[in-house]
Computed example of a mutant assay.
Amino acid sequence: MVKATTSKEDRMTEVMSSGTYFGWGGFIIQSGNLVVIVVMIVLFVLALVMPFPGGKGRK
């Protein structure tokens, strides 16, 4: 017999079980999302540090 309805806890367990999660205190993040955030931060820092092309010769 198949259950017609699932409880909220069953759905959350199903969602939480699909992937690798990291947690620090009350903060939980999926590994894929963590990779995307780290890449975005690295690109942002590189954009701040790297000079614009041709920027030194202009007045």
Rank of each mutant, 00 (worst) to 15 (best):
Leu46Glu: 03
Val2Phe: 09
Met1Val: 04
Asp10Met: 15
Lys3Glu: 04
Thr20Pro: 02
Lys8Leu: 15
Arg58Phe: 08
Met16Trp: 01
Asp10Val: 12
Leu48Glu: 02
Phe22Val: 03
Val45Met: 12
Val2Leu: 14
Pro51Tyr: 00
Gly26Glu: 04
Val38Met: 13
Val35Arg: 12
Thr20Leu: 13
Val15Leu: 13
Glu9His: 14
Ser31Val: 04
Thr6Asn: 14
Asn33Pro: 03
Ile37Gly: 03
Val39Met: 14
Thr20Gln: 09
Ile37Thr: 01
Thr20Phe: 08
Arg58Trp: 05
Val36Arg: 11
Met50Glu: 01
Glu14Gln: 08
Lys59Arg: 12
Ile41Trp: 02
Thr5Asp: 08
Val42Thr: 04
Ser7Asp: 00
Leu48Gln: 07
Gln30Lys: 08
Val38His: 04
Asn33Lys: 13
Gly26Pro: 09
Ser18Phe: 06
Pro51Val: 00
Asn33Cys: 08
Phe52Trp: 10
Gly23Asn: 07
Arg11Lys: 13
Val42Gly: 09
Thr6Met: 15
Leu46Trp: 02
Trp24Met: 12
Val36Ser: 12
Pro51Ile: 00
Arg11Ala: 15
Ser7Arg: 13
Val49Leu: 15
Gln30Ala: 10
Leu46Ala: 11
Val38Phe: 09
Thr13Cys: 15
Val42Pro: 14
Asp10Gly: 14
Lys8Ser: 15
Thr20Cys: 09
Ser18Gln: 08
Leu48Pro: 11
Pro53Leu: 11
Gly57Asp: 04
Trp24Gly: 11
Glu14Val: 05
Val39Ile: 10
Met16Ile: 00
Ser31Leu: 11
Lys3Phe: 06
Met50Asn: 07
Val35Met: 10
Phe22Lys: 08
Pro51Gly: 02
Gly19Pro: 00
Trp24Lys: 14
Gly55Lys: 01
Trp24Pro: 14
Pro51Cys: 02
Gln30Thr: 01
Phe52Tyr: 10
Val36Met: 11
Leu48Ile: 04
Arg58Val: 06
Gly19Arg: 00
Leu43His: 02
Gly19His: 00
Met40Pro: 06
Ser18Gly: 05
Gly57Gln: 06
Arg11His: 14
Gly55Glu: 08
Lys59His: 06
Gly55Pro: 07
Val36Ile: 09
Gly32Ile: 00
Ala4Arg: 07
Asp10Lys: 15
Ser7Phe: 07
Gln30Arg: 08
Val45Ser: 08
Ile41Pro: 13
Gly23Thr: 02
Gly32Cys: 01
Val38Leu: 14
Thr6Gly: 15
Asp10Asn: 13
Lys8Thr: 07
Met1Asp: 01
Gly32Ala: 04
Thr6Gln: 14
Gly57Tyr: 04
Glu9Leu: 15
Ala4Glu: 06
Pro51Asp: 01
Lys59Leu: 11
Lys3Asn: 08
Tyr21Val: 05
Thr13Arg: 14
Gly32Arg: 06
Val36Tyr: 04
Phe44His: 03
Val45Lys: 10
Ile28Phe: 13
